[in-house]
Every structure is written in structure tokens, then in C-alpha cells.
Amino acid sequence: MANRWKNTLKERDVTPESAYLNRRQLIAGAAAAGAFGSIAQGAKAEELKPNKWDDITGYCNYYEFGTQKTDPAKYAHALTIKPWTVKIDGMVDKPGDYTFEDIMAKMTVEERIYRFRCVEKWAMVVPWNGFELADLLQLAGVQSNAKYVAFETVLRPEEMPGVHTNVLDWPYVEGLRMDEAMHPLTIMATGIYGKDIPKQNGAPLRLVVPWKFGFKSIKSIVRITATEHEPPTSWSKAYGRAYGFYSNVNPERNFPWSQESEKLLGSGLFARPQPTRLFNGYDEVASLYAGMDLQKYY
């Protein structure tokens, strides 16, 4: 079951970059049609102009390949992504090694144009292609008492120059609460602009959680574990006071720096910073955190 959420057209075919730039008029029309469920409120009617391919694929944080923004594009070519298997284990009915091809055969890939907000205060708009994580979890038969999902990035020192320095505790790990993982906004991305996702962006499949800071959207996933306990996450292990388990985009967040504004990449040297929006503007997730103190659970 896919297509539960839309923020723009649902073109599943390869869409050339130039075509994206002419679509903004259509988005307003789609919103006016109002043919979407209640969760489809929020960001969908807005003008979202995707960033250029070169910016999306040339400006990356993927520390396994180096800490400079340009390092992943330089070094990620060494990563072997065929064959690729994802181990799905923990509290699931059908644990096992799922090949990438097996997964793709069963999933519905659709296009999601999302805002992407880094904790470093920059933002992009990315036209992802991918499927809802909920579908994959259901495929594996996630059990009802599982409360969290843990993710792990591939660790191959011979292919990843960045892991020879202990910038982080490798392998990179992330996690979501089950309701966050099952939310229709949460996807596993396998493409950008209708092309296979480049290695520097997390090939062959990565998580995208658009209302959380970018580091939650873990790349090149080899393991998914359904669990009862909140799993450790790389950045909270490295600097827990700054980067918590939830890491929702929040303008009130003030440590280690103020998150009140953000800079949309690709808008030039003289672009004025824009105000940050709670949950990165994806208001439909607010109910997941009803009654929670977001300063405490950051």
C-alpha cells in the first residue's frame, strides 16, 4: 500500500531535471483538487523547487568517505553496491537477508519532493524516488510489540577512506520510534531525479525522514532491526547533549547553535536566511509528539 501521501505530482517515470523546474504551477492545481487524505495537509501545496542535481550530489555529509562536503562525491565511487543485501531481524516474523532486488520487486517506488534540513543550518529540496518504510517493515512482518527500529550503515574500511579516522563510532547507526518509522512520510530512497541514487547520497537505499535533521536519514543501509528498546544513534553517542534520539527540526533548538534560521542551498552568496519551521514544515507529524516536551526529548 503506497501513495498514502503526496506533496506534488506522482510521476513515476524518469523525470529530467529541467522538467522539474516547470512544475510549480501544477502543484497548486493538485492541492486545489483536494483529493488527498487528512495527512496530506501541510507542505504539499507549497512551491518546492528542487535543488540542482550537482548541488544535491556534490554537497554531502557522508563521513565514511571524509568530513568535507565534497569528499563523498570524490571517494564514494569505491563503494560496491552490487550485490546488496539488507538483514532484517529482531522482532519480525520473517527475519532474514533480503536482497536489494527482492525488495525492489515488492515495493512501489514513487516520487517525493521533500525539504531536507541539516543540523548545520543548510537546507535543500530533493526530488527523491523511493518507497515507504512501512511497506518494507510490513513485508518483514514487524511484530506489534516492537517499539523501535534500528538501522545500520555498511562498514567497509577498504572502500571507505573516512572510517580510518575515529570521527564517529563506526558503523553508523540510527533509529526511529515505530510510529515514526511507520509514518507515510518516512521513505527509503533509492533514487533522485528519477535516476538511481548516487553512492555519495547513500546508494543503493537510504532512509529519508523529512521532518528530522538530515543525520537521522541514514545512508547505505545493510541492517534493519525491530526492537523493544530505544536504539543507540551515532550522533547522540558522539555528542548526546547536542544531538538527541529524536532530532526533530525545531527552531527553538538552541544547542550547540541556534536553529532559528536556515539557508537554502543553491540560492547564492547574497541569499537571506529563512526562518526554520517546526518539523521542517511537515505539520502532519505533530500528533506523533503530542504532549511531549520537545526541549527535553530533542
Binding site: 554537497y59 562536503k69 543548510w122 539557508k263 542551498l265 543553491g266
Partner: peptide, 15 residues
Amino acid sequence: WGVTNQLGADPVERL
């Protein structure tokens, strides 16, 4: 280079 957009996605940071 910054003014003429040759410093990548985030020219302010680069500069």
C-alpha cells in the same frame, strides 16, 4: 567566485 556562483551549493560557508 562567490559572487559568480562558482563556490558550490553553499558559497557563504565556503568563503
